[in-house]
Write a protein that binds this DNA or RNA. Structure first.
Lengths: 344, 344
DNA sequence: AGTACACTATGAAAACATTTATGGACAAGG
DNA sequence: CCTTGTCCATAAATGTTTTCATAGTGTACT
């Protein structure tokens, strides 16, 4: 009985005709809003069910100027931390009726900007940027103007980044405190030559460095530049790099990611050093690698789930025009997961 | 100079007025199509650039009945294999002007169906389902009718699943051959009591089982049901489970995922068994765990990148109405990455 | 009882911003 | 003068939401 249009889909006119009502009434029924008599509502719903009518999102988007979609950009999803973040964001958002459109921007500034523009063109309701708001990995240059530019159109939520501005909100892990605590624990357990291995100059990485240095200073241990190194976030790269040094002397390592820490374990194994006896090692992110390695890795859990949950919660508030109630910046604590590569 | 409409956005009428042309001409310029004189095109483009006009996707979607979007469903993205798949799919699709809308369905049938319906309602141009088309993880029941139902609306592409039907296309890894080769290699290196550890009854897992059994039969080794076990895909679970058995005798293990294999390594370490001396172990998926473990894990690389690339390539063909040219089902070979947990 | 009034349920039509089919103006070539 | 081709404008079509208007119904006041 349903007459189909050019696209072969039932539309609101078909429903209206079949139910002997106007399209306005059908629309009201579909949107659950307003006052419609129970009998009419029932009649319309039955027909909608029978011909399985789904309102056209484009037309709806045109009318409402929104499609209940949020954009998520990550540098890459091929990284356990990012993957988990996307997983939780999607989970919480879809639970609230929002779809996620995903963009992997790469680590370059150009890619990120392009990705953001692409998402904005889709008329998303909000934008979430996960991590790495800095440009490049070796440079300390960063340009976040394009983010503030984007914020003129939609609220922007940054996870583990340091952008601020009108209509941009941030949620960060307290990486500084976590790294301070790890380093302090190592010092208390008798370590003095603690190496800091990082894979980037990102906001998070810099906070971790601050925590590390604060702990050293507090213990009156001079900060030794030679013990601070930037490496690729790759197990074998780290192992091989450390093996090249002849006169490197250290008795502990704090790393900004588990892969780096595992690289140190491989180095220790190659040199015949015992862990945590000769060298204590602490990783970061509490990834699956932390329990795959031998010995199993002490690591920092940065509560991705919590961060994502808080972000989505605030995002929904902002979208619902309760922006005054949401803080522009919140911080979530981390916690240390003690395993077998440290003796604290 | 630009006059803004209710939503504060420049529209095609504004451009038309400023350029002294009709909106049809602006549309033609924007879409690059048709014949427009160079002078007009230039004039219009300049104005578009100046006021940074972006066509409204909703209106465009309404007119074209497409928004250049494809839906991707995965059971979870919090799994390295899935995460990498999504990464590559997004990469190849966005390179071709398509956006991805992501849905994590969970492993339950209901969730999957709901997720698919949600995506269809968004009028996606195609749907990609990654892995696990089976229901549950312990049951062999599967209902793929909802997928064929979805295929009535959009082309469906299944990665590592066994659905077939009108308008559904599949791309699978040759897991059977890979597992056959791993098992054969273990047999040739002198192993006889080879255990098969799997985490699911998915299509892939079943293919792996077939390969395993084929290799045994070919070598005239009887298939021992006790050596075939289903476990959780979790390192410590596997270790603890194996430790519970008193009289379990095996000299090799093939696993359907690296995490399971690493669990076996942990078991061996706890029992004081040498790997690969006393027990040879082979993992699957060649994840980051494979090089994090000690010794490093022999594993199977199933070429996610290739699978995703092929899928997107065929998807684009189908969307461009070249469906006759694309095969409904293709298979991509895997390859074994030899490391230190096997002596072949 | 009659009238004014409020309120409910519903319909008509405008608005949303595009694409595209149709056809017209104009120029060039026979 | 007729034909052909190029460039472009007019208008229809796409499928909703929402504002405004109105018919109908019940209520209170005179």
């Amino acid at each position: 009985m349903a007459s189909y249009n050019k696209n072969g889909q039932v539309n609101i006119y078909d429903i209206a005709r079949m139910a002997n009502v106007s399209i306005a009434t059908v629309s009201r029924v579909v949107n659950g809003s307003d006052k419609v008599s129970d009998s009419t509502r029932k009649k319309v719903l039955e027909i909608i069910e029978k011909v399985s009518f789904t309102p056209n999102v484009f037309a709806r988007g045109l009318g409402l100027n929104t499609m209940h979609t949020v954009g998520i950009t990550v540098p890459t999803i091929s990284d356990m931390y990012m993957a988990r973040a996307v997983y939780y964001l999607e989970k919480f958002l879809s639970k609230n009726g929002y779809n996620c459109i995903l963009g992997c921007s790469g680590f370059e500034q150009d890619g990120k900007k392009a990705q953001v523009d692409l998402l904005l063109a889709k008329r998303i309701d909000a934008l979430i940027l996960v991590g790495s708001t800095y440009a490049g990995s070796g440079e300390n240059i960063h340009d976040t103007d394009y983010i503030r530019e984007a914020a003129k159109n939609v609220p922007v939520f940054v996870i583990n980044g340091d952008v601020t501005g009108e209509n941009v909100y941030a949620c960060v892990c307290d990486d500084k405190t976590a790294m301070y605590e790890v380093t302090s624990a190592l010092i208390k357990s008798g370590r003095e030559k603690i190496m800091f291995l990082s894979d980037s100059h990102s906001y998070s990485a810099n906070k971790k460095l601050e925590g590390y240095e604060t702990a050293l200073k507090e213990a009156k241990i001079p900060v030794n530049g030679e013990l601070k190194m930037y490496v690729q976030n790759e197990i074998h790269y780290v192992r091989d790099m450390l093996l090249q040094y002849k006169n490197l002397s250290f008795d502990a390592v704090v790393a900004t990611d588990d892969a780096i820490a595992v690289g140190v374990l491989k180095y220790a194994a190659a040199k015949g050093l015992s862990v945590p006896g000769d060298i204590s090692v602490a990783g970061y992110n509490n990834s699956s690698m932390a329990i795959a390695s031998e010995p199993e890795l002490t690591s920092v859990d940065n509560h991705v789930e919590q961060v994502c949950f808080d972000t989505v919660e605030r995002l929904l508030k902002v979208i619902r025009d309760e922006a005054k109630e949401v803080e522009p910046r919140i911080m979530v604590p981390c916690h240390i997961v003690k395993r077998n590569t440290t003796d604290f």
